[in-house]
């Protein structure tokens, strides 16, 4: 027994040796949470930003590591609930998928965290949506889709996903009855599902649509952007619903609730500087998800406006299964 006790005391002594004291930001490694597994769009965005942030800190003479940390689970909820409980010292931040992560705010559903309590730090990605149909389906325009005598079928990732919300809002606004088929793993997955005829159409990020359509397999029938980029694609304004241009997908970075203003500013500045780096902007453009960085205040404004708009569709979103 004595042997066991001595053995138990040893690790305790080692643990005590690394007790640090909390100081100003940044005084230790920054944990950059990714609410999904490695390999996805959010993961690579953070992995691209992290070294840029490290470089900026190094230039200030601070040898701090920014550690991308994957915390997949509950379609992004697990990491958010973790962040809600983290210390608000700027050393734990997370990339959010908006508006998907705002589901709780929009519908009042319990999701395990309160998005509105998080400290918004900035925007590092901003995308618009297109509607794609399979070329062989014969659906060449929104008009064709609206003329269908049956509900349209839309394969996607599932309820609560950003694309599902966007799709619900679009079809509700246009008065088209839509049936969603959830459960696909990624946008590549449901883009292919449209091609093999699992459904009629789906919504894709505009940035990647051109790539998916490299072989000309799809019709891009709508692009919800003030400046639609695809030939033959209409936008919300042309359909008489300019509000549809508010249906976007954003990559927002936020910290735990109750961060001190000076810490918020420090992190936000660091983030904005990294996301405005030419190499990041170019890379983001090339991979199809434009960076369009915003600072904390700008991002907060966008998010609040988004919530106001989405709130109109509260019931549709809450009902969707």
């Amino acid at each position: 027994m004595r042997k066991l006790l001595t053995a138990a005391a040893m690790p305790l002594a080692i643990a005590l040796a690394y007790a640090p004291a909390a100081q100003a930001f940044p005084d230790k490694n920054i944990k950059f949470l990714i609410p999904y597994g490695p390999g996805g769009g959010f993961d690579v965005t953070v992995r691209k930003l992290a070294p840029l942030m490290e470089n900026i800190l190094a230039a200030q003479g601070k040898k701090i590591q920014v550690v991308p940390t994957n915390m997949p689970g509950g379609s992004g909820r697990k990491a958010a609930s973790y962040l809600a409980k983290a210390r608000p010292d700027g050393h734990t931040i997370m990339i959010f998928n908006m508006p998907g992560h705002g589901l709780g705010v929009i519908t009042g559903k319990k999701v395990g965290y309160d998005f509105e309590k998080f400290t918004i730090l900035g925007r590092v990605g901003h995308g618009t949506y297109v509607v794609v149909t399979a070329k062989k389906s014969g659906l060449k325009s929104i008009k064709d889709i609206m003329a269908l005598k049956r509900p349209i079928k839309v394969p996607d990732q599932g309820p609560g996903s950003t694309a599902r919300m966007a799709s619900l809002i679009v079809w509700e606004t246009l008065g088209v009855k839509a049936e969603h088929i959830g459960g696909y793993k990624s946008s590549t997955d449901y883009a292919t599902a449209v091609l093999r005829g699992d459904g009629d159409l789906t919504l894709l990020a505009a940035g990647s649509a051109a790539r998916y359509n490299a072989r000309g397999d799809y019709n891009i029938v709508a692009h919800f952007s003030p400046k639609p980029r695809f030939e033959g694609a209409v936008n919300g304004k042309m359909l008489g619903h300019p509000d549809l241009e508010k249906v976007t997908l954003d990559r927002i970075v936020a910290g735990p609730p109750k961060m001190k203003p000076e810490v918020t500013k420090a992190v936000s500045d660091l983030l904005l500087k990294a996301a405005s780096d030419k190499s990041y902007i170019d890379w983001a453009e090339k991979t199809g998800n434009p960076a369009d960085p915003l600072d904390a205040a700008g991002a907060k404004k966008e998010i609040d406006e988004g919530f106001k708009f989405f709130a109109k569709f509260k019931d549709v979103i809450a009902r969707s299964k």
């Binding site: 042997k3 066991l4 053995a7 040893m10 690790p11 305790l12 080692i14 643990a15």
Partner: peptide, 13 residues
């Protein structure tokens, strides 16, 4: 106590 201190103690015992 984490992996690093526990593994050697456990192995040794």
């Amino acid at each position: 106590f984490g992996f690093l201190p526990v593994i050697p103690v456990y192995m040794f015992i």
